[in-house]
């Protein structure tokens, strides 16, 4: 490691807030753009599976009724 202590690394020679802040914001943006399609795919897939089950049920139901 380049720094002598964790406190030194945190301080970044007086520019700690700038450096860590820049990395923090970057990781937040990356996390959000990753999360958006992942959550959307999950929700869409659940909808498609449910719809498929419903159709299957509708096909089976008339036979059960007779």
């Amino acid at each position: 490691m380049y720094f002598d202590s964790a406190a030194d690394a945190l301080a970044m020679g007086g520019h700690g807030a700038f450096v860590w802040g820049a990395y923090g914001i970057t990781f937040l943006i990356v996390f959000l753009v990753l999360l958006r399609p992942v959550m959307s795919i999950r929700a869409l897939n659940a909808g498609i599976r449910q719809e498929a089950l419903r159709k299957q049920g509708a096909q089976v139901a008339p036979e059960n009724a007779s």
Partner: peptide, 27 residues
């Protein structure tokens, strides 16, 4: 990020604020 933040050497002119380069330039 850990490499750029903690292991790369400090810039002689700008000090540690230069470490932003490792995300700024790639982005």
């Amino acid at each position: 990020s850990v490499w750029g933040l903690l292991f790369a050497p400090t810039d002689y002119k700008q000090g540690d604020s230069y470490r932003i380069i490792y995300i700024h330039v790639p982005a």
